[in-house]
Write a protein that binds this DNA or RNA. Structure first.
Lengths: 356, 356
DNA sequence: TTGTAGGCGTTATCAG
DNA sequence: CTGATAACGCCTACAA
């Protein structure tokens, strides 16, 4: 009855046109929602397309079209806030009429491979999320690309690519203001040495110390940010270091939630109560911070806003290539949860630890 | 010196050919590593390609080529084991000469949209990871697709699409054997009602009860698996229910790690010690289980094997469409960590809870 | 080893 | 609204 098994060729616009007796270009018009077809014809075209299971060939389309409407996105699928930003990019892109093409960056697949993949599809712009490339590499990439590049999460304003990041310094400052306002006088800060956006956040801590006349208590953790579970191990290590002390700070801040949660859990497992004995806060407001069983105070870095800003930057320059790249800074906001509270009057907590 | 700002057109094979004075087809030959060009010519072509920043237009290529070498992958970027499976698919696909095209499934982007996206690129096969579609929908999708569909993580053998899943029932059985072997006689099981692969895992629990002559203790949790943090909330809710009891089981098993970790944390926050007072185990061996501060015993569901099996199924049917779909079952393995131990002789733990 | 010719499915232009 | 024609960049076949 049907064609044989080898008629696996997907239907084309010509097939639709033949089926309902109109021209190919009319079908094309309808598929693009362009004026020039009657409502009745539109209906018949759409109906036939559905019956045949027609899907436009995007390769042919991009071959013919002058300009692409695709945003290429490079991301690390298993790296904490990146998938959320990707979802936001889909939403923001759709709102501006852009499709999204994903390309993963993994242990066995370099950023350059992902770039070539997306360039091969002739994307209108590239959005690179949390790349492990440094500025020199990113610059080289942006130069060979011919297409605007937007870097999300790291970097500073420069003339080669757009930068979209959150205001980590101000976010940490606000968190410190809140803790100091609660009465905390000794606030420790965990610093995972090899984390790209960490420098900015630490600056927020350092400046807050002066503003509130607090003493500095920096726990610097070495390591490789690409190593599996680096952030979590940094949190555990910081907790262990604290637990070895005779007196504890009344609060600890970490520049990401993975580290903060790991720190918090290690403290709790060792008999401390949070926030009664010690307050803990993080950065990101990652899903893990929102768990009712974690309930971590954190500085929210809105993935939706980051994604939207990245799309805006990409579209802006895709449509006007001569514009210079910009830097977009996304405001953070403090999310107070149950892991922080006013310190106790006397440092009974440290006594409790010493007694263990 | 150079062309003007509007010469943003990416270089083509013709440009390369013109530059070094050879024919376009020779360039094509070289780019495809086909025989028919001298080594010297090859070198010059590659050099010119690099200088010009040439990237082959995959749209044009797919338009011309008879068969595609792309695997389309549909996944939910923020859903726990999926990104890891995606990474594995990249590796396995590359080993077989296939590229990977990703398309995300989000709260605002349906599976069908992702399917259309990938079909538009004329992928050779579709791999659908953890879709929220039921069998009827998946079947309809597979039928309209003309291209083989592989479903990862759920479903049973059928004649419309391939199924690649892990042996959840056997995995849970093995875990139960281990716990019973430690001396546990009362083992509770958390069952998030709306989780796709949960039914199979629960069957493993049920069967183990008979084998070890244990009494059944099933905590059934309602909810919508697409809701944010559903699994975590299920874990917290299960913990709360346990804490209300006068006597506790000596062990609790959950069919995924998110639920198990949330359960564990809630128990710890309420003063129980794990594993001294109660053992907790999960399923997935997700990264979160490996945190030193969580250290959760779990049933490992190897994302690399799942990804490799999915690629194998996809390639197999892409290259021989007439073959019937198969079901591939990936063996799980028990990963014992610190959250499980032999129960205490007397149920002091329950007394401790009652005293709170 | 190189050249010539044609076509993949779509978009675009222009005259009817 | 249709029909004719061309083009996008690449691949394939075949002839030189």
């Amino acid at each position: 009855m049907n064609n044989d098994a080898n008629s696996r060729r997907p239907p084309t616009m010509a097939d639709i046109a033949a089926r309902i007796g109109v021209s190919r270009q009319l079908v094309s018009l309808v598929m693009r929602d362009q004026p020039g077809a009657s409502d009745e014809t539109r209906r018949r075209v759409r109906e036939a397309a559905k019956e045949l299971g027609f899907t436009p060939h995007v390769g042919a389309r991009s071959l013919r079209r002058a300009q692409s409407k695709d945003l290429g996105v490079i991301f690390a699928p298993t790296h904490s806030p990146e998938p959320e930003i990707v979802e936001a990019i889909y939403t923001a892109g759709a709102a501006r009429g852009y499709d999204v093409m994903l390309s993963a960056q993994t242990a066995t697949r370099s950023t350059d491979q992902a770039v070539d993949d997306l360039l091969g599809h002739r994307c209108a712009a590239l959005i690179v999320i949390g790349s492990n490339l440094d500025h020199a590499n990113l610059r080289t990439t942006a130069e060979r690309t011919l297409v605007p590049v937007v870097v999300v999460g790291q970097g500073r304003r420069n003339q080669h690519y757009d930068v979209v990041r959150s205001s980590g310094d101000k976010g940490i400052s606000e968190l410190m203001d809140y803790l100091a306002g609660l009465g905390h006088r000794r606030i420790a800060y965990v610093d995972p040495a090899s984390m790209a956006p960490a420098a900015l956040r630490r600056r927020g801590y350092e400046r807050s110390l002066k503003r509130h006349d607090l003493s500095r208590d920096l726990l610097s953790l070495p390591g490789d940010s690409l190593a599996r579970n680096y952030f979590e191990e940094a949190g555990s290590a910081a907790a262990s270091e604290l637990l070895r002390r005779r007196t504890l700070p009344t609060a600890v801040v970490a520049p990401n939630d993975d580290t903060a949660v790991s720190l918090l859990q290690t403290l709790v497992r060792n008999g401390l109560r949070v926030p009664e004995d010690i307050s803990v806060a993080g950065f990101d407001d990652a899903p893990i911070a929102r768990l009712t069983s974690v309930d971590l105070t954190s500085v929210r870095q809105d993935p939706d806003l980051l994604g939207a800003a990245a799309v805006e930057a990409a579209v802006r320059r895709a449509e006007q290539l001569e514009l210079p790249p910009r830097e977009s800074v996304i405001e953070t906001s403090l999310v107070v949860r149950g892991s922080t509270a006013a310190p106790r009057r006397r440092t009974r907590s440290s006594a409790a630890v010493a007694a263990r």
